[in-house]
């Protein structure tokens, strides 16, 4: 049956995906790829169906050797690309190389590949523009966040998403882009989780927008559905939790203090510098003002994806 290559395999999402694929006996082999050496991963004692390759995705030569070496030998026919830089406070060309260039190169190599037929790209709900004048319920044709003042964290995600979308229909490869809601879990780059790490959470005065969050289990379920169905295109992956920001703060057991929006950027910049946290107010500014909830109808009808794993709010870690 299907052989799958998973990038970003050592992240909680990648790891959960690999485990889910391993549990599926119809998946013949799994090729897990990440930057860490094998000895430092959870795949040390992996079964024979799983092969792990430490790899820097920004080096095209290495990627080519992997794809046209072990991947071809294993008959990999689907690639799930989840690797993206997780820290929002780190900018620069190296981050861009991983977020955008690596996705482009991987896609181009997949197009030339003799066995790969399906490319699943994990994208983000953050690529969508969230403003007062756009719909609250975000469908796949919603305006994207193209503001030149957007932080690199967002711009990279938009560019990578569009890079992959631009190849749809032009090549025989089946391309699926999954724009997932914010994955609310540790070590996946969740901005909200980092924000809720403090006992006191400052939120914009006069605004309490609706958010949608997805659990790792549901995100993995969406990725698996994207592998299992022949559907192509862009799909939103909403999570089971749709709630106002204030409710999220309350469920996490934190105290919300509304403050003028102008104060929040310097306040959280100071927090990041002094404590080393990752939350950036400029990344989250608009969605902390205006509601933006993914509409998952398309994923439901075409992928059979329905979120069913709500977030366990009792396990929100504190700093």
């Amino acid at each position: 049956m299907r052989s799958v290559l998973v990038t970003g395999a050592t992240t909680p999402i990648g790891e959960a995906l690999v485990r889910r694929l391993l549990a599926n006996k119809r998946v013949k082999s799994i090729l897990a790829v990440a930057a860490e050496p094998k000895g430092r991963t959870a795949f040390r004692n992996a079964p024979s169906r799983l092969s792990y390759f430490p790899l820097d995705l920004t080096r095209q030569r290495n990627v080519r050797e992997l794809l046209f070496g072990p991947a071809r030998d294993l008959g990999v026919d689907a690639v799930v690309h989840t690797a993206q830089h997780r820290r929002a406070t780190v900018d620069g060309p190296r981050v861009h190389a991983l977020n955008v260039d690596a996705a482009r190169e991987l896609l181009m190599l997949c197009e030339e590949h003799p066995t790969i037929r399906r490319f699943v790209f994990r994208s983000y709900a953050e690529v969508y523009s969230v403003k007062a004048e756009v719909p609250v319920l975000i469908q796949e044709d919603h305006p994207l966040e193209m503001s030149p003042s957007a932080p690199q964290w967002i711009r990279d995600r938009v560019e990578a998403d569009l890079t992959v979308c631009a190849r749809m229909g032009l090549v025989p490869l089946h391309i699926v882009v999954l724009r997932a809601a914010e994955c609310f879990a540790c070590d996946v780059g969740s901005q909200l989780l980092d924000y809720l790490g403090s006992r006191v959470c400052f939120r914009p005065l006069g605004f309490d927008p609706m958010l949608n969050l997805i659990s790792v289990d549901d995100l993995v379920k969406g990725l698996v559905r994207a592998l299992a169905t022949p559907a192509q295109g862009v799909f939103n992956l909403p999570g089971a939790d749709t709630l106002p920001l204030s409710k999220a703060i309350e469920l996490a057991g934190r105290r919300a203090i509304p403050a003028p929006g102008l104060l929040l950027k310097p306040l959280y910049a100071l927090r990041a510098r002094t404590i080393g946290t990752d939350f950036r107010y400029d990344v989250n500014r608009w969605r902390f003002h205006f509601s933006g909830v993914l509409d998952g109808r398309r994923a439901r009808t075409e992928l059979g994806y329905v979120p069913e794993h709500p977030i366990d709010w009792s396990r929100v870690p504190r700093m």
């Binding site: 319920l137 309490d208 609706m210 939790d241 749709t242 709630l243 106002p244 409710k247 509601s291």
Partner: peptide
């Protein structure tokens, strides 16, 4: 109800 007593629009 989208899960926490609010509809998607709030």
């Amino acid at each position: 109800d989208a899960g926490h007593g609010f509809d998607p629009f709030g």
